[in-house]
Design a binder for these strands. Structure first.
Length: 299
DNA sequence: CCAGCTCGCCGTCAGGGGGA
DNA sequence: TCCCCCTGACGGCGAGCTGG
């Protein structure tokens, strides 16, 4: 097994273990008896319990060679199992409703620190970028781009830039002209007021800058094109490219958010395991005590 | 010092679920 | 039915660790 395959194998086993944990919790009455005090313990024990952490679990799983031969299941079957699994948000929220004290995953995570206040007053954006000139660009759900100046207050500092493929623009929104690629290898959104939002075409992080346009209008710019007015193959190709870029960017953000939720979910599960282990130990001790009481010694 | 390994993170793709 | 979101899977990359 190569390096990556080995890594995926470990992950898959971890995932199966996690699912077993969930199932055992969901059908067990022990879960229902979790009290608020124990939930508080759960919080307190996070990160300092005696159970192996994920890395240790991974090591244990990895060294179990017999599991490797038995654990290779049909990919289709596995995929069916995986596809039936609800989202982390749902699972954790269900757990939270069962157990007071377990934090819920918020429906829409606010950007929190670093978010310019004048953008925070708007609809929750998907991504926020700061330009080299200190301006903020918020890319909201639905592809709407908002630009704000740090000095301006509130909504007044925002310009709503509606992507030309996102249907009818809201009232008052400015139509942005879009160029798929300029001469310097960047993507540009033309903003009213003789400004250009430039997206770099390369690099790990998408970068945006507000520039004065180098030329009046580069070739390939669609002048306030409505969705139905794209005709030439070049325009269609540009539209497809832009849609793809947008989709990739959204998916990138979604993946980040998904991983964040997954981490939170795993932490929650680890805490739960710790609490249940303690509870289990207590019950075993109680059982032993009761046995001693109920079975008098014969000699 | 270096190769090999492990781990964590990221971007992308594929496919299912759910709402409009 | 379409579109968007969510998430598992996969491959790549860099950092840290370890044995030779």
């Amino acid at each position: 097994m190569n390096k990556c395959g080995r890594k995926k194998y470990i992950k898959t086993n971890l995932r199966q273990m996690t699912m077993e944990t969930i199932e055992s919790q969901q059908d067990g009455s022990v879960t229902d008896s979790l009290t608020e005090r124990e939930s508080a313990n759960m919080q307190a024990q996070t990160g300092q319990n005696s159970i192996p952490n994920l890395a240790q679990v991974a090591t244990i799983t990895e060294t179990d060679e017999s599991t490797e031969s038995e654990g290779v299941i049909d990919s289709h079957k596995r995929r069916e199992i995986l596809s039936r699994r609800p989202s982390y948000r749902k699972i954790l929220n269900e757990l939270s409703s069962d157990v007071p004290g377990v934090p819920k995953i918020e429906e829409e995570k606010s950007e929190g620190e670093g978010t310019p206040p004048n953008i925070a007053t708007m609809a929750v954006p998907t991504s926020i970028y700061q330009t080299s000139t200190g301006q903020y660009i918020a890319i909201a759900q639905g592809g709407t781009i908002q630009i704000s100046n740090p000095g301006s207050d509130g909504v007044q500092g925002l310009q709503a830039l509606t992507m030309t493929n996102s249907g009818a623009p809201p009232p008052g929104a400015a139509i942005v002209q879009y160029a798929a690629q300029s001469a310097d290898g960047t993507q540009q959104f033309f903003v009213p007021g003789s400004q250009v939002v430039v997206q770099a075409a390369t690099g790990d992080m998408p970068t945006y800058q507000i520039r004065a346009p180098t030329t009046a209008l580069p070739q390939g710019v669609v002048m306030a094109a409505s969705p139905g007015s794209l005709h030439s193959p070049q325009q269609l190709a540009e539209e497809a490219t832009r849609k793809r870029e947008l989709r990739l960017m959204k998916n990138r953000e979604a993946a980040k958010e998904c991983r964040r939720r997954k981490k939170e979910y795993v932490k929650c599960l680890e805490s739960r395991v710790a609490v249940l282990e303690v509870q289990n130990k207590k019950l075993i001790e109680e059982l032993e005590t009761l046995k001693d009481i109920c079975s008098p010694k014969t000699d």
